[in-house]
Design a protein around this nucleic acid. Sequence first.
DNA 1: ACCTAGTCTATCGTCGACAATCGTCCGGCG
DNA 2: CGCCGGACGATTGTCGACGATAGACTAGGT
Lengths: 239, 239
Amino acid sequence: MLDSPDDYPGVSAVMLETSVDLVYANLRRAITNGTLMPGQRLVETRLAERLGVSRAPLREAMRVLASEGLVSNVPRRGVMVAILRKADAAEIYGLRIALETWAAGEACRLATETDIAALRALVTEMERSSESNDVEVLSGTDVIFHRRICEIAGNHRLLRVWTGILSQIRLLSRQVIVTLYADLHDVPKRHELIVEAIAQRNPVRVETLVREHIESVAARILAQMTEAEAKGLGGEVTV
Amino acid sequence: MLDSPDDYPGVSAVMLETSVDLVYANLRRAITNGTLMPGQRLVETRLAERLGVSRAPLREAMRVLASEGLVSNVPRRGVMVAILRKADAAEIYGLRIALETWAAGEACRLATETDIAALRALVTEMERSSESNDVEVLSGTDVIFHRRICEIAGNHRLLRVWTGILSQIRLLSRQVIVTLYADLHDVPKRHELIVEAIAQRNPVRVETLVREHIESVAARILAQMTEAEAKGLGGEVTV
DNA sequence: ACCTAGTCTATCGTCGACAATCGTCCGGCG
DNA sequence: CGCCGGACGATTGTCGACGATAGACTAGGT
């Protein structure tokens, strides 16, 4: 379940971070983890007790999560883990493509040799994990790769929004069991192309490659979701 | 100053919205207004009393504002209205261009005839206000025009981020006195071109036009800020 | 006179309590 | 038998209060 409070609450031995930050990180992880499933209600009293804090900091943390779209807050009815529909998924990936193609273009201008080397290292990591069919590591590296590109673009606000988008994607993947990639062994190659385009400082090509890559993933998820919604008729989890 | 609470607090006659929403809207307006200036400290007790609420909802509202980048929150030292540097302005406009060019491209696909008519109406509104040299109305219409395009794009998350970006821009304009446009009479023409490109469903052209338009505004502001930072060496307002 | 140490005040972070509200359950009525 | 209305319980929204912390101020030593 949720992590218990690491140290005894109230003692406040070495409280560097505030409770709000702790709770925020904890809940965020639990949601993207799948520990807290979409649609699940988050009752303040229970959660607060479980996390060893009072309701005040908990509520502050949940406000932030709500503003990031990870939970949905209906004024006098409480907070639940957000349920994302197909339309949401389309929005999320649309926005992601917009952000990331731009980031990739910027990365073409800004990437240092070190940056490019780091990206290449990630690609070899992908090769390793795709050969050993380790989807966990592969998709993890995939995410790191894309975050890296956003970091290279050097826009903190972009990175912030992107991170938000990505945790929504993680939330999505809690609702739909997706075979993320059509072909595992295709993944490293795609990313290698991206890196080389960056190395050649070819923004147009990079943008196309990134767009196509993300679109292909998005298409798989959206297809899966149409199927799921046709059957289950969307989120009805009330627990 | 800040708006006083509209109805008597505690009476809770018809409290449709929660205090948090009220306070949030109030503070947001005050910040983008210039009622609360960048760098100004927001002391919880004082603000709470002024707004007629207790500290709990106030803090929740401020958390959200902090996550939107309108205020900056240093853990045990309090909250202040954010001070934006030149680097921030560059980030903000960079992100805005990325978002809005994409939105404009989408709008090409999605705009109905009604949408286009509405945009044309905004352009004529711009013509009126530019002829009468009414910069207030002109820039207001300008913003509405651009928001409209984001709305047409039909991506709620995009619109959300865009709105955040725009309030940061408003905050920026509290720090630098900018003559926003090089030539007032240029503005309606630029926007007319954008509308017509949308009407012709020409995404490439629209994106170029939007990019150039925003870049020109951004360039003016950035120039102004380099000047200001060279002199004043950035925000030191502590009040 | 300047720097250092101790205190002191303003303010934050957190908590428990109270009232208002929403959903639910039960009984009565058509 | 199903629908409507009123009371109950659970949960939220808000408040005031209590420690804890950071910065300022004062006093003392060199």
